[in-house]
Design a protein around this nucleic acid. Structure first.
Length: 803
DNA sequence: TCTCACACCTTTGAAGTGG
DNA sequence: CCACTTCAAAGGTGTGAGA
């Protein structure tokens, strides 16, 4: 725990007695959050009453020496100590306040700490109410000196990752006077002065070449063909199929943090109509973004490579006020999971670290609160072990229901025979039930049991299956098999079709029938599987397996780099790649400052990973979020078979608890309400749709060193950033995929735009961003903080930027 | 379209047992 | 002690009724 271990180094710095804090506070405007905070020039003595003995730098990157100060206040003795230090590469700000009451010294909670310099002391009225995360954001979005108030956790310590801390330090060093000003519990404030020691040195980094392979790809593709749906519930649901990847090419000795997040695939809301996912309008306002850090993070490359990295613990929810750290999604919206590799030995370094992001288009899905497509339901049942109870085999509920239905049908038929002499064969349902009786035996049902290997086969038959579906029109043909292979389709389809008739009524049956119908599908690139799937069934018949094979091979992990300048885009366009020309080393935000990418702690959902972060930011996180801890899963460590060995977590905090603490964030209260805008540039280049990633030649290639940081400050409405290739939201539904899934309108339009977008994105220079005036930035911040920046705004951005 | 209780299932880990 | 088995609790599923 860097934070704690090094904290003591400066703890004994010389303290300077200061006058009443009333003489030290900021201006009246600044006093809004600091009761007596007018910055008063300290006396020369006070100013230079630094620690005489410059302490030995803890390491080469120690920048500032601590100068503690204390002040005696009436009626209590009020002692406060400030500490700013940079401990590779974390800037640590700590403050401790003690109140001596009747001779007994008691520690107080340090409510706020303001970092300031003597020549300026900016104060943002929103900051105190938004917590440190936003303060950091604002701080970096403005030119120095701008050191907003930082709310300190109860323990009085705050760690700022390098990306956040370095700018502060640099500015502090250039200031004539630097100090910490903090208040506590409404008492008088005190100030600590600091002085710089030396400058930061850039980190050296050894090259590596990570490659990521999606596990259970066939299963994903199987779902993808039908339009993957992921159920989101208030209590959180896991993803199925689980997101698993295998990493190679990592530096065995270096430590990495692996993360996953889920971003909107487009700016549309969908509806399931006529067995198809269709665009139903503009997307709802985005949910707070959260990053899920793999519980084993950080771990060495060797450890990561030794196992399959499983993100099965990630949970999806639609509860915007979720405090468990689950990923919050909007129902009926399309999402794209992303996988990130960050080379960092400490989660605290994440915000300024380089992200390698990998997107697997076959993993996109539509979030639903209830399954819409029965095929997906059946796929889930067939493959998710937890849903075994619903399988046609065994003694599960479905079987029992079937038996019940069978019994009732028998009695019904017997009754009809008695009444009419013969059964009514004209009744499709009855026929179905008859068939059902024939196929409901366990022996037949087991045909439907297939494993992953079967999926591969089924993959090959998917077209066949689709064709079948097409041919099968009418009530009976509507009984589409939801299984994954032909044999299953044939055998199980019978039983399932019957099942659909017998144990499903109303909407469900209707949906099954609808599934069999095919409608025109948007045709997109043939270089991608997704695109292939988007083709209409008729065209699909002309497709060869070769083509499919090729498309599979095209599922190359996408490595993108945003080091380059600020090719930020709208947050609503979540892109998954950057154009070749976007490589660079800096990351810019719309606020105009070139700055490292930022992450809000509460955006992280992490298991063990959080334990590290908790060391430095846990208190902050805890302060930001509340509750949800007690209900957390305490056994969130990956199962032995999946977890990485070695790399013991430095802390024994319960991972889920940590996750809940660290990840929970108030709605829109996070640092970046739209943290994914950084992808916009890439998106514009690669096309917003995930599938477009493959279509783009560049995106199909492996880019070992292309990197970007996934988070960047969002675009403001008036920013002219890259646009998405999102075409005007047609009121008419756009079919996405052949079998229920469709490509996003964005994808559809992107096919022909990718190239141009790519170049266009390049034109989106950081300079453009940097030229934004600070007032606009401030407004932007306010909007972000208030969560007022709505979808329409972002949509507008998209339109404007396209111009 | 969403929420919730429910039955059914797997997973997990503690407890028990035997060597 | 170790390995194995048993058991119960926790947690993950889709379902279906109701809002």
């Amino acid at each position: 725990m860097i934070f704690c271990a090094r904290k003591e180094a400066n703890s004994d710095a010389v303290r300077t007695r200061l006058g009443s804090s009333a003489s030290l506070g900021p201006t009246d405007r600044q006093m809004r959050s600091f009761p007596s905070t007018r910055p008063v020039k300290t006396t020369p003595t006070e100013q230079h009453n630094w620690s005489e003995s410059v302490k030995e730098p803890i390491n080469r990157e120690l920048l500032l020496e601590t100068c503690n100060t204390s002040t005696l206040l009436k009626p209590m003795e009020f002692r406060s100590t400030g500490n700013i230090s940079v401990l590779d590469p974390v800037l640590r700000i700590s403050a401790e306040m003690c109140v001596r009451v009747k001779g007994r010294e008691r520690k107080c909670v340090c409510e706020r700490v303001k970092v300031y310099t003597s020549n300026n002391m900016a104060y943002h009225p929103f900051l105190p109410h938004r917590g440190p995360e936003f303060a950091m954001s604002a701080m970096l979005g403005h030119q120095p000196p701008f050191f907003p108030a930082l709310a300190l956790p109860p323990n009085g310590s705050l760690s700022l990752p390098g990306a956040l801390g370095k700018p502060i330090m640099e500015q502090l060093m250039g200031a004539a006077e630097t100090g910490l000003h903090f208040s506590s519990l409404g008492h008088q404030a005190a100030t600590a002065h600091l002085r710089p020691l030396k400058t930061l040195e850039p980190e050296e980094e050894v090259e590596d070449d990570p490659k990521v392979h999606l596990e259970a790809k066939e299963l994903w593709e199987l779902f993808h063909k039908r339009g993957t749906e992921m159920v989101i519930t208030k209590s959180g649901r896991r993803m199925f199929p689980p997101f698993k990847v295998r990493c190679t090419g990592l530096d065995k000795k270096a430590k990495y943090i692996l993360l996953m997040d889920i971003v909107a695939a487009d700016d549309c809301r969908y509806k399931f109509h006529n067995s198809r996912w269709m665009v139903a309008g503009k997307a709802d306002p985005e949910m707070p973004k959260r990053m899920y850090i793999h519980p084993d993070s950080p771990a060495t490359g060797e450890q990561w490579m030794s196992k399959v990295v499983n993100f099965h613990k990630l949970k999806l929810t639609n509860n915007i006020s979720d405090k468990h750290g689950f990923t919050i999604l909007n129902s009926m919206h399309k999402y794209q999971p992303r996988f990130h590799i960050v080379r960092a030995n400490d989660i605290l370094k994440l915000p300024y670290s380089t992200f390698r992001t990998y997107v697997f288009p076959e993993t996109d899905f539509i979030a639903v609160t209830a399954y819409q497509n029965d095929k997906i339901t059946q796929l889930k049942i067939d493959h998710n072990p937890f849903a075994k109870g619903f399988r046609d085999t065994g003694n599960g509920r479905r079987e029992k229901r079937k038996q019940l239905a069978l019994q009732s049908m028998r009695s019904y038929e017997e009754q009809q025979k008695k009444e009419n002499g013969t059964s009514d064969d004209s009744s499709g349902e009855q026929v179905s039930f008859k068939c059902f009786r024939q196929t409901s035996s366990p022996a037949v049902s087991t045909v439907g049991q297939n494993n992953l290997k079967d999926f591969c086969d089924s993959d090959e038959d998917s077209d066949e299956e689709d064709k079948d579906v097409n041919v099968k029109e009418g009530p009976d043909s509507s009984k589409i098999s939801t299984t994954t292979e032909d044999s299953k389709d044939h055998d199980a389809s019978l039983s399932k079709s019957l099942l659909g008739e017998s144990d499903s009524v109303g909407r469900r049956t209707e949906k099954i029938r609808a599934d069999s119908r095919q409608s025109p599908i948007t045709l997109i690139s043939s270089t991608t599987r997704s695109g292939e799937e988007l083709k209409s069934p008729g065209r699909e018949q002309t497709k060869t397996d070769d083509c499919r094979t090729v498309s599979k091979e095209n599922y190359m992990p996408l490595t993108v780099q945003t080091d380059g300048a600020a090719h930020l885009n709208q947050s609503h366009l979540h892109n998954f790649g950057f154009p070749p020309g976007l490589a660079g080393q800096q990351f810019f935000n719309h606020l105009g400052g070139a700055h490292p990418f930022l992450l809000h702690p509460s955006q992280f959902n992490m298991g063990g990973a959080f334990s590290n972060m908790a060391a430095g930011m846990g208190p902050i996180l805890a302060a930001v979020s509340s509750g949800g801890v007690s209900s957390m899963d305490t056994s969130s460590m990956p199962s032995p078979s999946q977890s990485l060995t070695g790399a013991p977590l430095p802390f024994h905090l319960q991972q889920h608890v940590l996750a809940s603490q660290g990840l929970a964030m108030s709605p829109f209260g996070g640092l970046f309400p739209y943290p994914y805008t950084y992808m916009a540039a890439a998106a514009a280049a690669s096309s917003a749709a995930s599938s477009s990633v493959h279509r783009h030649p560049f995106l199909n290639a492996v880019r070992p060193r292309l990197r970007y940081s996934p988070y960047s400050l969002p675009s403001v409405p008036d920013s002219t950033l890259l646009t998405t290739a999102v075409p005007p939201m047609a009121s008419s539904a756009i079919d996405l995929k052949g079998d229920g899934m469709t490509t996003s309108p964005t994808s559809a339009a992107l096919d022909s735009e990718v190239t141009s977008r790519s170049s266009g994105s390049v034109s989106l220079s950081p300079k453009t961003c940097a030229e934004k005036d600070s007032s606009t930035e401030l407004q932007s911040i306010q909007r972000l903080v208030s969560g007022l920046e709505s979808k329409p705004d972002r949509a507008r951005i998209g339109n404007e930027s396209t111009d």
